[in-house]
Design a protein around this nucleic acid. Structure first.
Lengths: 202, 202
DNA sequence: TAAGATAGTAAGTAATTACTATCTTGTGAG
DNA sequence: CTCACAAGATAGTAATTACTTACTATCTTA
């Protein structure tokens, strides 16, 4: 067992902070996570946090950066090298759900951040994440049409909205059940309906 | 113009309070709505609120009751008298979206309430609302199968999850755009894909 | 129209929040 | 070994929160 030194270098401390927030968001309402709770979860005094972040908002920004980076990386990895666009979308979907199941706080933080009235840096981060996500989807959908895997008359924009909404539905389901296991189980079943909706005639 | 009397009877004041919260939630993060903001929005001092509600939590409970009642009524009205189950589902979907477009804060309050770690009365209210919603969906889906409108092999549970998720996707879209107009426009397009996913073979 | 009931005001409270100032300690480069 | 400085502890601050209290205005009705 690695013995953690009391004093961490600044960049490591920042990384640990982000992890602490992600972990807290798994069981707490993200909007109610206080700097005291974050510090407590990483065995640090509250004031020490502000040695590494100028404000709480900066912490949230760092968290959303972490999320955007990891999520897109996972989703890209799942889709790369897959020849069939529909299969790539399926891989992307399941990878996304798996990511969310590992970090249940993530979609709630994203949704929570979008609700903020003020245009925070973290909110801007989320917007950019979703924009990039949709670019990927759009590319796959278009090439799926060209390949004849997807219906030629498919409304691409609506299909992208539905893709993301489908995941939101699973998240909501897991919030209701208070258990993330349902998500993994239901994901393939729900995607089956989605793919039938966008696929070429049966 | 009707001149509003300064003193309202208790039940009317409670109703006005609920309306104030719904209106505030349309433009503010529901989790950040303070009792001072509620009172201010209805031209009342903050303390006076507590003459009518024992706690802020009780206000949220009243709000969720309002939401559950109205939403289910709207959705029921849209489905009643429609012979085809699939058409009823479509009516339900569009009525729901219309309701949300009129009260954009509603889905955000619901989602926000589900996130709460503590099992509040308002949260319980939301659970019950969604349960009742799903019962209605389940009934329609099953009768759709019997009628042959829906695919016989359809996974009913997954279809219900996707139905609700589809609306969540539209909500997310409207949060991104900061505009509720997109929802009304996109709703029929998104439902078209959904209904293709659950319908009998083409 | 007097009097009790109801509704609202103004000015508090204690608790919690993000953030800061000051002092202390751990640690790695020389 | 040592010592400068990065990292953390301690103990604050002002602002904001839900909620309360003591009092006043306004209705209702006998």
């Amino acid at each position: 067992m690695k013995h953690r030194p009391r004093n961490l270098p600044a960049d490591e401390r920042r990384a640990v902070t982000v992890e602490a927030v992600i972990e807290l968001a798994a069981t707490q309402n993200p909007g109610e996570i206080t700097t005291a709770a974050i510090a407590g979860h990483m065995n640090l005094t509250q004031g020490a946090l502000f040695r590494h972040f100028p404000s709480k908002e900066a912490i949230w920004q760092a968290v959303m950066e972490w999320v955007a980076e990891r999520l897109l990386a996972r989703v890209d990895r799942a889709a790369e090298g897959v020849d069939s666009p529909l299969a790539a979308m399926r891989g992307m979907f399941l990878a996304h759900v798996e990511f969310v199941a590992e970090h249940p706080g993530v979609p709630r933080m994203i949704f929570g951040e979008l609700q903020r009235a003020e245009p925070t840096a973290a909110k801007q981060m989320v917007r950019k994440l979703i924009q990039r996500y949709r670019e990927r989807l759009h590319r796959l959908i278009e090439s799926g049409k060209v390949r004849g895997e997807l219906s030629a008359e498919l409304d691409s924009e609506a299909a992208a909205i539905l893709f993301i909404g489908t995941i939101q539905g699973l998240v909501m389901q897991s919030l209701l059940a208070g258990d993330v296991a349902h998500m993994r189980r239901d994901a393939p079943r729900v995607f089956a309906i989605y793919s039938r909706g966008i696929g070429r005639a049966l």
